[in-house]
Amino acid sequence: MKINQILILFLFFNFTNVMSIEPDEILEDVQLEQRAREISSVLRCMVCQNENIDNSNAGIAKDLRILIREELIAGKTNSQIINFVHNKYGDYVLFKPPLKFYTFFLWISPFVIFFFLFLLFFRKKKID
């Protein structure tokens, strides 16, 4: 019950506040800021329901947003930064799951479903 209540608290907490990127976090350099947004849109806030770190106002998300910008200024590439965060927090932090054996089926599923249905449906014709 306690955990549920805490979860519900988080839920309200997160959904009742607007996009939490604050004006003082935004970089002067428009292109770097654009890249920062691209990176944060694929990173999940670890304590929220289903939000990326741009939309979250949790402390951990803010820390990550600042970290990303520091690394960008230091000249790291997007994938270097995402890898760094991924290594630190694990798969859960990535909204786009990495290609591994346990996510393989997820990634190939659109092709599998499409070809399965296509064959199921248009195969008939060849027999005729």
């Binding site: 849109s41 694929v42 999940r44 289903n50 990326n52 694990g90 798969d91 859960y92 932090v93 990535l94 909204f95 786009k96 799951p97 346990y102 996510t103 997820l106």
Partner: peptide
């Protein structure tokens, strides 16, 4: 359930 791996599938996917 099967791999004990926590992953996220969100908007980018």
């Amino acid at each position: 359930a099967f791999f004990e791996k926590k992953i996220s599938v969100g908007a980018p996917f």
